[in-house]
Write a protein that binds this DNA or RNA. Structure first.
Lengths: 187, 187
DNA sequence: CTACAAAACTAACACCATTAGTTTTATAAT
DNA sequence: ATTATAAAACTAATGGTGTTAGTTTTGTAG
C-alpha cells in the first residue's frame, strides 16, 4: 500500500460526475471540484494532470456507462424490439446524466485514442443490433450512422430545450425509431 | 449621427464569428476578441453587455444564417427533392461554419425568448417541407422532431469526429434521409 | 472653434488553472 | 514503539480570464 492513501482518482471523478449532472458542465472547474472534495485546488494535481485530463476522464466514464446501459437494455432482444430498447436506454441515460452525457462529446480533442476506443464500443453494439436487418456492407455503415445521428440528435435537442411543444417526447422517440426501421425495409 | 462613431455591434459579431469558425468556440473570449479588433477588453463593454450577451448574439446570428441557407435551398422544390436539399444545406452550413453552428445550441440559457423565436423559424420551415407527406396532426410534430434530430445529430457527430470510418459522408446523409422518408410512407 | 457624448482607455478586483516549493501524515520497515 | 519515507495536501506566486469604476481621448454637431 502507498505511504499515504488519500483520495483516489475514482472518488474525484465520481464527485466531478455529480457536479456536472447537478450544476452543468460549466460548473466543472478545478476550483469547485476541490471545494466539493474539501481540499485545495492544487492538491488535485496529485491525482490528475489538469482540467483537460479530467474532462477526458469524464468523457471516458460517460461513454463506458452509456455503453453499459445500452448493452444491458438489449440482452435477449432482437429486431425492432432490440432497437427500441437501445434507443430508450440511450435517451434515458442522457436524461439521468445530462452533464456526463454532454461531456461525452464535449471532449477537448475527440481524436484521442482512448476516446475513439470507447466510442467504438457503442458503434459495435449498434452494428450488432442492426445485424438482423441483413444490410449489405456499406449500407450497414450508413444505417449505423443514421441511428447514431437520430439518437444523439434527439438527446441533444431534448437537453438543450430544442423541442418546445408540449407533445409527448417518448412517443416521438418511439415513432421516429419506428419510421427509421420501416425505412430500412423499403429502400 | 453619434458624437463619435467607433465600432459597431455588427463588426464585433462578425469578427467573433470568424474567430469561432477559425479557432473553435473555446477561443471566443473577450480577450482574444478585443485583440482581433485592436482594442482593449473593457472597450467591448461600450457595445455589448458581456460575454453572455455576445454568445447569445452569436447563437442568434447562427440560427438566422442557417435558416437563410435552408430557405434558399428549398425554393421551388417539393417532396423528397426539397427534403434532400434542406438536409444538404443544413450540413453544408455546419461544415462551413463549425464554430457558429456549435454556438447555435451552446447558448447559455436556451429558454431565452429571442433564441426560441429564431429556432421557431427553422421548425416552421421543416414543417412546410414535410407538408407534402400529408401527416396528421401530432404525427407531423413527431416527424419534424425526427428530421431535426437526424440533421443535428449528423452535423454534430461529423464535427466532433464521431464518424471514424472512411466511408463517404454525403452518401450516408443521402441514404439516411431516403430511409427516413421511406419510413414516413410505410407507417 | 467649441461643447459634448460616446468610445477607448487605465487601474483594480475577483475568479480561474497551473507551477514550485514546503509541510504534513499515513504507512512500512525496523 | 520508533522512525524513515513517499505520497498527499498545503502555501505562495504567476498569468490568464471577465467585469466594474473612473479617466482620458476624440470625432461630430452646433
Amino acid at each position: 500500500m502507498s505511504p499515504r492513501m488519500g483520495l483516489t482518482k475514482e472518488q474525484i471523478i465520481e464527485v466531478a460526475v455529480e457536479l456536472a449532472n447537478r450544476e452543468g458542465i460549466e460548473a466543472v472547474t478545478l476550483a469547485t471540484l476541490a471545494k466539493g472534495l474539501n481540499i485545495k485546488t492544487p492538491s488535485l494535481y496529485n491525482h490528475i494532470e489538469g482540467l483537460e485530463e479530467l474532462k477526458k476522464q469524464l468523457a471516458l466514464t460517460g461513454l463506458t456507462r452509456l455503453l453499459e446501459n445500452m448493452t444491458d437494455a438489449v440482452v435477449g432482444k432482437v429486431g425492432d424490439d432490440a432497437v427500441h430498447a437501445l434507443a430508450n436506454a440511450y435517451v434515458q441515460f442522457s436524461r439521468e446524466n445530462p452533464g456526463l452525457y454532454e461531456l461525452t462529446l464535449a471532449t477537448p480533442n475527440p481524436e484521442d485514442v482512448e476516446i475513439q476506443e470507447a466510442g467504438k464500443g457503442i458503434v459495435e453494439l449498434v452494428i450488432q443490433v442492426l445485424e438482423n436487418y441483413k444490410l449489405k456492407d456499406e449500407d450497414a455503415i450508413h444505417a449505423v450512422r443514421g441511428l447514431r445521428s437520430l439518437l444523439h440528435g434527439f438527446a441533444s435537442l431534448e437537453q438543450k430545450g430544442g423541442f418546445g411543444l408540449p407533445v409527448n417526447l417518448d412517443k416521438s422517440l418511439h415513432l421516429i425509431i419506428t419510421t427509421f426501421l420501416a425505412g430500412l425495409l423499403h429502400t
